[in-house]
Design a protein around this nucleic acid. Structure first.
Length: 427
RNA sequence: GGAGAGAUGGCCGAGUCGGCUGAAGGCGGUCGCCUGCUAAGCGAUUGUGCGGGAUAAUGCCUGUACCGAGGGUUCGAAUCCCUCUCUCUCCGCCA
């Protein structure tokens, strides 16, 4: 969330940030009004509390000396009642202010292009060329069926739509991708591996920004306060919730595999076939905690670390600077990596790398003590897919397919596939 | 699942019949003194949020809140009551 002090001193920054995103409401003004009222009451109630503290002390002294304090006690009874009323009112105001702050999105960085939809995103770079075929190429869902790698039909039977069984070499491909990516990030990019819980409680979801605004996108476990994580970003970013870190611990870089669960409310009819949009999918995530002055540099290197995965897999992709209208709620700046997907005849998002600045850190209360000492400051948090496994598998099937229907295994994955060169028809 | 114990400052650990405890004592940290070096010793200092004030400014002054979380009783709660969460021990069960 944004700093209430920033809103007070510089409300235009927040309002213009929202305008840039195409959001027009008066939540900033509302918050400011409530904040003004709150501070007025706060001054009043704190004066009364000061009086109460003083007189209580006097009562204590009176009693010790065996004197009658009845008059003062009666007087304080009224003061206390009034304090309680004011405290209640302040609590109410605080709740409202807090809720508003939690529903105001982050301010886009100045380098974020303006625009309202993905059509306004800015292509930053391209790597490789879209794959061309001199034969009739297939979509990965058809290939997955023919090669007996993916079983959507039985998954529908067992669970429902947007679920899948991976089988045989398909299951192994998925597992190979996970291990390949984790190894790359821990061995060559300096990340520490984390294996997080796949469920978190409400506070964690609020910490990273999924709640309170987007509850319908999440799976909640009935009769509990647990949510299935939509991404490892949630447990890993919340790792240090409420803590004060030491400056020399920063930057901290983590990579985590997790299954991800998304309700995909509002995506009815979109990407209904294949691996692109599933309720459950696998992802290797990158998360960083850094000092504020380094965060944009760290965003570049995080994105480069994600790009490296695609380069080693030799999958054509492009890098896109998301426009303000397409930017995630908590993000100040996001690069999407989009992989070439022949069945879509287009680039498809496969990684999203964001700098949240202190927006998540303030929600999750993650701070660090600066080297020179002084007050704790909020860290900056970043994360990015490094990368989405299911979409990577789909991209490999489609981009590496051969005329005979087989799929060549990318070089870097061969060791993980037990030396397998090619995924062929089962015999 | 059953039975019990507990949650206090960076850490350990006191807190008596509710008042003089933001919190004894110790450790650690920081600064100063002392000292051939190291070690030891001596002195001082050492939380966070929020409001207000002054300021070029991290700093500073002042008020207030915080002893797992949230409520309650009271003139006054770390201390009493209720609810919740978490941790530990024993038994049972289990990957």
């Amino acid at each position: 969330m944004l700093d209430m002090k920033l809103l007070r001193n510089n409300p235009d920054l927040a309002v213009n940030g929202m305008k840039k995103r195409g959001i027009h409401d008066n939540s900033v003004d509302e918050a400011l009004d409530l904040d003004r009222e709150k501070r007025l009451l706060l001054t009043e109630v704190e004066q009364m509390k000061n009086q109460r503290n003083r007189v209580s002390q006097e009562i204590s002294n009176f009693k010790r000396e065996g004197m009658d304090a009845e008059e003062k006690i009666l007087e304080m009874r009224d003061v206390s009642r009034r304090i309680k009323e004011l405290d209640d009112r302040i609590r109410e105001l605080n709740d409202k202010i807090n809720y508003l702050l939690l529903t105001i999105p982050n301010i886009p960085h100045e380098s974020v292009p303006s625009g309202v939809s993905e059509d306004d995103n800015m292509v930053v770079s391209r790597w490789g060329n879209p794959t061309t075929f001199d034969f009739q190429h297939q979509a990965h869902w058809d290939m997955g069926e023919h090669l007996n790698l993916l079983d959507f039909e039985r998954a529908g039977n067992v669970t429902g739509a947007r679920f899948v069984f991976y089988r045989g070499a398909g299951a192994r491909l998925e597992r190979s991708l996970i291990n390949f990516m984790l190894n790359l990030h821990i061995e060559e990019h300096g990340y520490q591996e984390i294996f997080p819980p796949f469920m978190v409680h409400r506070d964690s979801m609020v910490g990273t920004g999924q709640l309170p605004k987007f509850e319908e996108d999440a799976f909640k476990i009935e009769d509990t306060e647990y949510f299935l994580i939509p991404t490892a970003e949630v447990p890993v970013t919340n790792l240090y919730r409420g803590e004060i870190l030491e400056a020399d611990q920063l930057p901290m870089r983590y990579t985590a595999y997790s299954a991800c669960f998304r309700a995909e409310a509002g995506a009815h009819g979109r990407d209904t076939r294949g691996l692109i949009r599933q309720h459950q999918f696998n992802k290797v995530e990158l998360v960083k905690f850094v000092s504020p002055e380094d965060s944009y540099e760290e965003l570049e290197s995080l994105t480069a670390d994600a790009e490296r995965v695609l380069q080693l897999l030799e999958l054509p992709y492009r890098k896109v600077n998301l426009c303000a209208g397409d930017l995630g709620f908590s993000s100040a700046k996001t690069y999407d990596l989009e992989v070439w997907m022949p069945s879509y005849d287009d680039y498809v998002e496969i990684s999203s790398c964001s700098n949240f600045e202190d927006y998540q850190a303030r929600r999750a209360n993650i701070r660090y003590r600066p080297k020179k000492g002084g007050r704790p400051r909020y860290v900056h948090t970043l994360n990015g897919s490094g990368i989405a496994i299911g979409r990577a598998a789909a991209a490999i099937l489609e981009n590496y397919q051969q005329e005979d229907g087989s799929v060549v295994v990318p070089k870097v994955l061969k060791p993980y596939m037990g030396g397998l060169e090619k995924i062929c028809f089962p015999h």
